[in-house]
């Protein structure tokens, strides 16, 4: 495993191995010295061509806990705004000596391109490419779910956690703007690969072409779906206004009424159903304050687990010699 570009090509064994390493990494956070010497003297470059708070901070914290040096690049205020091309930017960074790239870009396939063009020969981690994939988000969601569904604390250090297990038999709903969501794509592939029964619930205008070929069950009505199925977790997606250049629904109020996780819908859900959201949340829109702040919400656990999972990914990609078959 040289790069982490998507979850569609991640096999179950590698995914479970990463989640298990993340369990060990979570234990480091309770120590007095919250640092491991694994990446001492190596440089991880965070390349963010698109806005991000939690993902960039989370990758930075993860790399620093592994003792790596971190260089942060954001396109705003850089030579990219003077018109520098992606190739020149990458080759400049390569010349400064990077040992790994963490890339977020609005163009789908950017991470794949960096991994395969030969502009730079280091492991590449996709931190979100357009509407394509966001594999570390899916891994941290799977980590959080695996903890919660097996009766462990959803975040924090746990000595004998759910190691070695997948998500077999778990019924998970992903609700909302699937069309623009890289989180949804990554989760569909990863959760299904781990054995979960994944359901997509969305208006037809917010489902991508070809969604019927995914390993999912599709519903077009939130209330009907919630009534018909006993979901163990419901993942609400952010409505991505910044990617919407057409009208996908009549107006915000109608979307909130038909597709939002309101207090009334929260009351209908079984008491043990967990609520997830990749953040940032649009409160009162796709998720009500009642749902976001309820005791069943795992939103902050997801953020906390992000650091452990990203430490595990960097550890997996940057230690050991590379197998020649990529």
């Amino acid at each position: 495993m040289k790069h982490l570009l998507d979850t569609a090509s991640l096999d179950r064994e590698d995914a479970v191995a990463i989640l298990d390493i993340a369990e060990e990494m979570a234990l480091v956070s309770q120590r007095e010295i919250k640092k491991l010497p694994v990446l001492r003297g190596r440089t991880v470059v965070n390349l963010f061509f698109e806005d991000s708070t939690r993902t960039r901070l989370s990758f930075e914290a993860a790399a620093k806990r592994l003792s790596a040096d971190v260089l942060n690049f954001s396109a705003k205020g850089s030579s990219v705004s003077k018109g520098e091309s992606l190739q020149d930017t990458i080759q400049t960074i390569s010349a400064m000596g990077a040992d790994a790239l963490v890339v977020r870009h609005s163009g789908a396939g950017t991470a794949h391109r960096l991994a395969h063009t030969g502009w730079i020969d280091v492991p590449v981690v996709n931190a979100g490419d357009g509407t394509h994939e966001h594999p570390t988000q899916a891994l941290l969601d799977a980590f959080t779910l695996r903890r919660a569904l097996n009766g462990f604390p959803a975040s924090g250090p746990v000595e004998e956690g759910p190691r070695g297990r997948g998500l077999d038999g778990a019924k998970v709903a992903i609700v909302g703007d699937v069309l623009h969501s890289r989180v949804a794509r990554s989760n569909v592939h990863l959760l299904a690969r781990l054995g979960a029964d994944v359901h997509l619930i969305a208006p037809p205008t917010l489902l991508p072409w070809g969604a019927e070929t995914w390993p999912v069950t599709i519903h077009y009505d939130l209330d009907e779906a919630l009534a018909a199925e006993d979901f163990q977790a419901v993942m609400m997606l952010r409505v991505q206004h910044e990617r919407m250049h057409e009208s996908f629904f009549p107006n915000a109020r109608e979307y909130a009424r038909l597709w939002g996780l309101s207090a009334a819908r929260l009351a209908v859900l079984p008491a043990e159903t967990f609520i997830m959201h990749p953040g940032p949340m649009n409160r009162g829109f796709e998720i009500s304050a009642a749902a976001a702040d309820s005791s069943r919400a795992l939103v902050l656990d997801q953020v906390e687990n992000g650091v452990s999972v990203r430490m595990a990914v960097l550890y997996r990609l940057l230690t050991g010699q590379e197998e020649t078959n990529d």
């Binding site: 495993m1 191995a17 298990d20 390493i21 060990e24 234990l27 491991l36 010497p37 694994v38 000595e159 550890y315 997996r316 940057l318 230690t319 050991g320 010699q321």
Partner: peptide
């Protein structure tokens, strides 16, 4: 006490999964 992450040959050799430290 797992020593995997403190090895001096982490970059070479084959990939090693960490073992538990308790």
């Amino acid at each position: 006490l797992d020593i995997t992450m403190y090895r001096d040959d982490l970059r070479g050799g084959s990939y090693r999964a960490p073992e538990p430290t308790r």
